[in-house]
Amino acid sequence: MDEVPIGVTNLKRFKKMPIYVVEEHNDALQFIYAAIGGKKLPMEGTTLLHFDAHPDMLIDRKLKGEDARSGRKVLPLLQIENWIVPAAAAGYIGRVVWLRPPWAKQFSDGTRAIQVGDDAHTGLLRVDSKEPYYMSDALYSSNLVNSRKFELTVAELSAAEEINKIEDLASSLNISQPYVLDIDLDFFSTGNPFLSLFQSINLYDRLEPIFSFKLPENDDVETIEKVNESREQQIEELENLFQHLEEYGDLTEYNGIRSDLFHKVSDLVSVVSTEAERLNVTPDWWAIYAGGCTRDQGGLPYHISSEEEIRNLIKSFSKLLRTLPTPVLVTVSRSTDDGYCPPDQVDLIQSLVLQTLQNMYETDDPYLYYLNVNT
Rank of each mutant, 00 (worst) to 15 (best):
K12E: 12
V353T: 11
L11K: 09
S266P: 04
Y367D: 13
T153A: 01
K130S: 08
I19R: 07
A290K: 11
T9H: 15
P193H: 02
P193N: 01
S266C: 08
A287T: 15
T336E: 15
F317K: 11
D219E: 12
Y92C: 14
E162T: 14
P216T: 04
A104Q: 04
E237M: 00
I183C: 04
T375E: 14
G117C: 02
D344R: 04
S142M: 02
E44A: 14
N218P: 01
D337F: 06
E239R: 03
R278N: 13
T323L: 13
A35W: 12
E162R: 12
L203F: 05
G191Y: 01
I175H: 11
F107A: 02
K315I: 14
T252K: 09
I114A: 08
P102V: 07
L139K: 07
F211L: 02
Q358T: 11
D186H: 01
L357R: 10
Q234A: 12
K226C: 15
P76E: 12
G65F: 04
D182H: 09
T46D: 07
I235W: 00
T375L: 12
D137P: 11
N218R: 14
A68N: 05
P283S: 05
A35Q: 04
S171P: 03
L124N: 05
E66P: 00
S147G: 09
L41T: 08
V271I: 08
A120R: 07
G7L: 14
I32R: 01
S333K: 07
Y254E: 05
T223L: 09
R278E: 14
Y302L: 13
L78Y: 00
Q243E: 15
D56S: 00
G71K: 12
D186P: 01
L48V: 07
Y361K: 09
W286E: 10
E229K: 07
V22H: 03
Q297T: 11
M57K: 00
L173S: 08
V269G: 03
L238G: 08
F188P: 03
E162F: 09
S335P: 03
F31R: 05
L49P: 13
E208R: 13
P178W: 02
T363N: 10
Y33Q: 07
N82T: 00
Q358C: 15
E66D: 07
S70D: 08
D168E: 06
K62C: 00
